[in-house]
């Protein structure tokens, strides 16, 4: 019975469909590798991070905060704060996941990322529900992510770009890019203003660590939710 919820045909279909997305992911992975090399992480450490964490935005943020020795608590918290959005993806894919168990379920949960999620939501609207599709798409993205960050590390080690080199601007550019699809409409304006208003002074008072990022996320979330509740009860 389980085979119908997780077929190898769907796995191949998902893998094929995510190839183009994997290409789009490549520069992002390269940036992670270059940043990791710039912070003195070894090739093995870079591969471990990309393979085990497999979440680009949190890796870039963590590498930006990376010092020597590594700030274990700060980067763990940063990863949690940045990836909290993934807690909302699993529930949205419940129709795909609820009939799976064992490695099929855990593999899909481990491979859950923004790009694969977006693809699954789009395919789900056309009737796709096979867990194999999700797994195949995630696996291709994972392999591409690992390969690109390792390649980026090799490039970063060879080029050794100095501090302030525009190559490092790619990390900031990645976050600016991600803001565009995150903007859902005018109701985001007030929470975003609140986030910026809180982030600026906190960044000045506590320049080390990710506190300004966490404070901004909480401020924006609270402002948005408060206003929704007021509008709902009014």
């Amino acid at each position: 019975m389980r085979a119908r919820h997780f077929t190898s045909a769907a796995l191949a279909r998902g893998a094929r469909r995510s190839l183009a997305i994997a290409l789009g992911l490549a520069p992002f992975g390269l940036v992670v590798g270059v940043l990791a090399a710039g912070k003195g992480l070894s090739l093995v450490e870079t591969g471990l991070m990309s393979g085990l964490v497999f979440a680009g935005a949190s890796q870039i943020l963590a590498l930006d905060l990376w010092t020597h020795p590594a700030p274990i608590l700060a980067v763990t918290f940063a990863a949690f704060a940045v990836n909290l959005r993934m807690a909302l993806m699993g529930p949205a894919l419940a129709a795909w996941l609820e009939k799976l168990s064992g490695w099929r379920l855990w593999g899909n949960l481990f491979l859950l990322v923004d790009h694969g999620f977006a693809l699954a939501i789009a395919e789900g609207r056309k009737g796709e529900r096979d867990g194999g599709f999700l797994f195949g798409a995630g696996l291709v993205l994972w392999v591409a992510w690992l390969a690109c960050s390792l390649l980026g590390h090799v490039l970063g080690t060879a080029l050794r770009p100095p501090r302030g080199h525009p190559l490092f601007f790619a990390a900031l550019a990645a976050f600016v890019s991600l803001l565009v699809p995150l903007w859902r409409g005018r109701h985001d304006a007030l929470p975003w203003l609140a986030a910026a208003g809180v982030a600026l002074p906190v960044a000045r008072l506590a320049p080390h660590g990710a506190w300004h990022v966490v404070a901004a996320a909480l401020a924006g979330g609270l402002v948005g939710a408060w206003r929704e509740r007021r509008q709902g009860t009014a």
Partner: peptide, 19 residues
């Protein structure tokens, strides 16, 4: 509702002080 606003606010919090 709060979780819906967290991702955008989080990246704003990173980008604005950096800029």
């Amino acid at each position: 509702a709060m979780l819906g606003y967290v991702p955008g606010a989080l990246f704003v919090g990173y980008v604005v002080p950096a800029l």
